[in-house]
Nucleic acid binder design. Structure first.
Length: 289
DNA sequence: ACACGGACCTGAAGGC
DNA sequence: TGCCTTCAGGTCCGTG
């Protein structure tokens, strides 16, 4: 599932169920995901109230009244579902394998929140609220692309002198936080920039942003905002805690569209797929230069 | 510091 | 029908 728009969609789905509620029962079905669960995880959560549910990059942050923050990451295949007061046996929406329900939170409101993650690339951690931004998860992260600090000047600054590709730069969470393979491909297409250009081409000799940098910043913002408005993208999986599907996948211009005509008006190109740094890049060789 | 490949893990889809 | 390979929305670690 999850790049920034999907994580934000999950956050908005969980927020009404979680904010203000108290953890009553925490069930772990295994000892680890990508990393072990924190020591005494259930004991540290039980009885704690959730003050707010936030997001930084692809991390969900549940602010607790214990001065700790429950940090959650969905990895590649993590998802949450929310059920109102559970009745009898678990209800599993279609496509969900209960074998991979690794964590179950029962809240004071009667809501049950279940974390499912077949590949187990997700994680949960408990981090002190004080100094959260200095924690290794967050210390090196670049700006939030939808925040007001993300701009052409900043992007040009991190791109300066870097010989790697534009594609790899945008996937680097230290440059800008929250993008993944889909939205990098989509943003580069919208900006009319080739994924193979050197990152340093975003800056001129003096380190000032080149024209492409401003277009790219705008393209990133636009594609993320549109995707959030669509509830994220659902590729062979659910995106939302209520079981509903995101529908931004229908608006992809290049991602997973190999062989199809480029949707840029007037462009006669055909979308291609190549492997770049071990991951698929989808692009139009005609209008992305 | 940076750039890159591989590792982590499961499931779906396609070819034979 | 099965078996095999490839691929998938992320990150971390080791190697030059």
């Amino acid at each position: 599932m999850p790049e920034l728009p999907e994580v934000e969609t999950v956050r908005r789905g969980l927020q009404p169920a979680m904010e203000g509620a108290v953890f009553e029962t925490i069930v772990l079905r295994r000892a680890d995901l990508r990393v072990p669960f924190p020591a005494r995880f259930a004991e540290r959560l039980a009885g704690r109230r959730i003050l707010a549910l936030g997001r930084r990059a692809k991390y969900l942050l549940a602010d607790l009244d214990s001065a700790e923050v429950l940090v959650m990451h969905l990895g590649m295949s993590g998802s949450f579902r929310v059920e109102a007061a559970p009745v009898g046996a678990f209800h599993h929406p279609r496509g969900r394998d209960p074998v991979h329900d690794h964590v179950v939170f029962d809240l004071s409101t009667g809501a049950r929140i279940t974390y499912n993650d077949p590949r187990r690339f997700g994680l949960m951690a408990l981090v002190p609220r004080v100094g959260l931004a200095d924690h290794p998860f967050f210390a090196g992260l670049g700006p939030e692309p939808l925040g007001n600090t993300f701009c052409a000047e900043l992007l040009a600054a991190v791109a300066r002198g870097r010989v790697t590709s534009l594609k790899a730069l945008l996937l680097d969470q230290h440059a800008v936080a929250g993008l993944g393979n889909i939205y990098v491909c989509e943003a580069l297409h919208r900006a009319g920039l080739s994924p193979f250009n050197a990152a340093m081409t975003l800056a001129d000799a003096a380190g000032q942003p080149a024209a492409g940098a401003a277009r790219l910043v705008e393209a990133v913002r636009q594609v993320l905002e549109e995707a959030i408005a669509a509830g994220g993208s659902s590729i062979s999986d659910h995106a939302r805690p209520d079981g509903g599907l995101g529908y931004f996948q229908h608006a992809f211009r290049v991602y997973d569209r190999e062989g199809q005509p480029c949707p840029t008006p007037g462009c006669r190109g055909v979308v291609r797929r190549v492997v770049q740094n071990g991951r698929s890049t989808f692009f139009c060789p005609v209008c992305q230069r």
